[in-house]
């Protein structure tokens, strides 16, 4: 299937790697014009090169999503280049490991919240007026199963991702009637640089895969497919929802 996003303009934060990169490539293959937004310029250039092998209508813009002036410029640059904005994918995020709550460094709390929650808020804030001018749109926020279940290895990350789920719901209550659908995906463990890095050893991810009901962890492309669905008109009656995309790992009974 192709052209599921034909003539749509999409902006993907965190587009340089992992789920964001897979989304950029998927969107480019479905006829979208895509802006890759990321603070990692080296990886952005790699993504851009890969995506241009699929479609010429892909550009990149550097952005730190926690900085309002950069976020506003990111949206402005997208509209200047492609004329409109129809889809925003908020995939930028960071997982900083932390000890239990009483020992969490306030600086780490701020670092995680600033990127994962404030950054996502700022991106929505800048994108929504542009989407309204375009006649509506779709926002897809990337949360995590860490936002649904307790995640002991980083309380700030877990709380920030729970915040993303609720921001999705609250924002959808305000903008669905204006033609902007806002949804969220909560992926389980996905084979991304972030997951590999946070696992702190190659063996740890292999162990997770071995114990997964599907016998593997998620691929970025698995999540990109779900993002594509929410970005496209195929999900036109869905707003304010969170889709769990964990390959069924939540169905495994706890070991008591």
């Amino acid at each position: 299937m192709a052209d599921r996003l034909k003539d749509k303009v999409a902006l993907v934060t965190g587009g340089a790697s992992g789920i964001g990169r897979a989304t950029v490539l998927r969107f480019a293959g479905e006829g979208a014009k895509v802006m890759v937004a990321d603070r990692n310029r080296l990886a952005s250039d790699e993504t851009l090169s890969m995506a241009r092998g699929i479609s010429p209508d892909v550009e990149a813009v550097p952005v730190d999503v926690s900085k309002w002036d950069q976020v506003q410029e990111m949206v402005d640059a997208t509209v200047r280049r492609f004329g409109r904005l129809d889809v925003l994918v908020n995939a930028a995020g960071v997982l900083v490991l932390s000890p239990p709550l009483a020992e969490v460094d306030e600086r780490d709390w701020d670092l995680v919240m600033t990127t994962n929650l404030k950054g996502l808020f700022l991106c929505c804030k800048a994108a929504i007026p542009a989407m309204i001018k375009s006649g509506g749109g779709s926002i897809v926020n990337i949360s995590s199963m860490a936002g649904v279940q307790a995640y002991t290895r980083s309380l700030p990350y877990s709380v920030s991702k729970a915040g993303v789920i609720h921001l999705t719901l609250a924002a959808a209550s305000q903008y669905t009637s204006k033609g902007i659908r806002i949804n969220c995906i909560a992926p389980g463990t996905v084979d991304t640089p972030q997951a590999r890095g946070s696992s702190q050893s190659s063996q740890a991810l292999q162990d997770i895969a071995a114990n997964h009901p599907m016998g593997r962890i998620g691929r970025p492309e698995d999540i990109a497919d779900t993002i594509l669905y929410l970005a496209s008109d195929e999900s036109s009656y869905i707003s304010g929802s969170t889709i769990i995309a964990d390959g069924g790992s939540r169905t495994v009974p706890p070991r008591i």
């Binding site: 490991l97 972030q194 946070s198 702190q200």
Partner: peptide, 21 residues
């Protein structure tokens, strides 16, 4: 070195660490 998420901040948003630390 030990935390990839923290490494990404050090690489791509070092100003945040300069201020915080």
């Amino acid at each position: 070195v030990e935390d990839y998420g923290f490494r990404q901040i050090a690489q791509w948003s070092p100003e945040d660490l300069v201020v915080q630390w």
